[in-house]
Write a protein that binds this DNA or RNA. Structure first.
Lengths: 113, 113
DNA sequence: GCATTTTCTCTATTATGTAGAACCTGGACC
DNA sequence: GGTCCAGGTTCTACATAATAGAGAAAATGC
């Protein structure tokens, strides 16, 4: 398989968080969104490393905004989904869906006929 | 990460394939099941490496069956899901589901209110 | 100035994903 | 009974993804 053909587990999560946040997606909010929705602890380094990878693959892009007039208002690096990212996350979903199909009736995890 | 706290992307797929195959889950059939359902090429080494890891984590177990009297009838190593594996895959699903919630209306990937 | 806040960058390490060659074992064939 | 074939597994090596956390920037408040 070619390298990076499929999104990793955390890459999927980060991409979805970014999508949810629409025009307010940057490192800190992405981290918060993931923690809020999944309850999973996320280190900030993990988020940025993943975002960088997604950007390198052409799934998202980012730009530095102007600093805002608040305490600690350092310039934020915003992210947005690119079309390739949209396809990638759809593909990931379809793959998992096809594997789950027909399982999980009443949480039973026994293949149903 | 706390080591191995979450299932990787391919780990999820392998686990689901194994579940689907019920009492006929061994290396070759698992590989086939994944290729059949997802269309994704899977090397046999990838499958076994992943199965070994899942076993080490206590998510599945395996045993060697007796060789069968067929051409190429080498003893097969069968796999089965353990309760911890069942929980793990459920958790993975819930995590992704919570991230997808409300998205993907008509494949649109724009957060819906 | 200097402390404090929010955010981003960088480094290091472990975990996961991946391919493929080598090897094992029985049947078929002659 | 040797050789090839088919279905299986093991092993090894390397590439990519996940993760934590310390440190550096940049802005405000006093």
């Amino acid at each position: 398989m070619a390298k990076g053909e499929y999104l990793g587990e955390f890459e999927q999560i980060v991409l979805l968080a970014l999508i949810r946040l629409a025009d307010n997606a940057y490192g800190m909010t992405i981290r918060q969104e993931i923690e809020k929705r999944t309850g999973r602890y996320v280190s900030i380094g993990a988020v940025y490393a993943t975002l960088d990878r997604l950007e390198k693959k052409g799934y998202v892009d980012s730009w530095l905004a102007d600093p805002t007039a608040e305490r600690g208002g350092r310039a934020k690096r915003y992210f947005e989904l690119l079309p390739a990212g949209s396809s990638a996350i759809q593909r990931s979903k379809e793959m998992l869906t096809s594997m789950w199909e027909g399982l999980d009736v009443d949480g039973d995890l026994t293949p149903q006929t």
